[in-house]
Computed example of a mutant assay.
Amino acid sequence: MLLAEELHDDLGHALSLVALNLGRLELEPGIEESRRDSIAASRRQVADAVARLGASVEVLRSGRSPALASRHRHIDLDELMADARAAGAVIEVAGQPSPARVAGFGAATVFRVMQEGVTNAVKHAPGKPVTVRFDDAGDRLRIVVTNELPAGYGRTGDEVGYGLLALGERVRLAGGTVETTDSDVFTLSVMLPREGTVAADRPASVRQAPNEVRRARRRSTALIWAAALVPVVAVGCIAVAVQLLTMQQAREAKLEPAVFARIEPGDARVEVESLLPAGELDRDDDPPAGGDCSYYAVTSNPLDDASGDYYRICFDGGVVVSADLLSAGHG
Rank of each mutant, 00 (worst) to 15 (best):
Ala239Asn: 11
Ile91Phe: 05
Val90His: 07
Gly106Glu: 00
Arg64Lys: 12
Asp267Gln: 09
Gly291Val: 01
Gly88Tyr: 03
Ala268His: 05
Arg155His: 10
Ala204Gln: 13
Arg142Val: 11
Leu27Tyr: 09
Ala107Lys: 07
Lys254Pro: 03
Gln96Tyr: 02
Asp309Ile: 02
Ala40Trp: 10
Cys314Glu: 02
Val242Ser: 04
Ala125Leu: 10
Asp136Cys: 04
Ala174Tyr: 03
Cys293Gly: 08
Asp304Arg: 00
Gly163Arg: 04
Leu245Phe: 06
Gly317Leu: 00
Gly95Ala: 03
Arg218His: 10
Ser62Gln: 08
Ala49Gln: 04
Val160Leu: 14
Pro193Tyr: 11
Asp136Tyr: 03
Arg101Met: 10
Leu149His: 06
Val270Cys: 06
His124Gly: 02
Asp78Glu: 14
Leu255Glu: 01
Gly138Thr: 00
Gly266Ile: 01
Arg52Gly: 11
Gly30Pro: 04
Pro231Phe: 00
Gln45Asp: 15
Asn21Met: 10
Thr119Arg: 14
Leu20Ala: 14
Gly12Lys: 06
Val270Gln: 13
Arg202Trp: 05
His13Pro: 03
Ala121Pro: 02
Ala216Gln: 11
Asp309Phe: 09
Ile143Cys: 04
His13Asp: 13
Arg44Thr: 08
Val145Gln: 03
Phe315Gly: 00
Ala239Tyr: 08
Val102Arg: 09
Asn120Arg: 08
Asp83Gly: 12
Asp309Thr: 03
Val130Gln: 00
Ala67Thr: 01
Ala41Pro: 07
Ala103His: 13
Phe186Asp: 00
Ile91Thr: 03
Glu159Phe: 10
Gly176Trp: 07
Glu92Tyr: 04
Pro99Thr: 04
Val122Met: 05
Val198Ala: 14
Ser183Ala: 15
Pro193Trp: 11
Ala67Ser: 06
Ile313Glu: 00
Gly127Asp: 01
His74Cys: 06
Gly63Ala: 04
Ser70Ala: 15
Arg172Asp: 09
Thr156Asn: 11
Ala137Glu: 09
Met191Lys: 07
Ser38Asn: 08
Gly106Ser: 02
Gly152His: 05
Thr131Glu: 05
Asp286Met: 12
Ser62Ile: 08
Gly95Tyr: 04
Ser98Met: 08
Asp292Gln: 03
Met191Arg: 09
Met247Leu: 11
Gly290Leu: 08
Ala108Ser: 15
Gln243Phe: 06
Ser34Gln: 14
Pro210Glu: 07
Gly30Tyr: 05
Gly291Ile: 01
Ser205Lys: 08
Arg251Gln: 13
Ala121Gln: 03
Val93Leu: 06
Val232Lys: 06
Phe111Met: 08
Glu179Ala: 13
Arg43Asp: 06
Ala94Asp: 10
Cys314Val: 02
Leu77Ile: 12
Thr187Val: 15
Asn301Cys: 01
Gly30Val: 12
Leu60Phe: 04
Leu245Cys: 07
Ser294Asp: 11
Ala47Thr: 12
Arg24Pro: 02
Arg219Ala: 15
Lys123Ile: 04
Pro231Val: 01
Leu188Glu: 01
Arg73Cys: 07
Gln96Trp: 02
Gly279Glu: 00
Gly127Thr: 01
Ser307Leu: 02
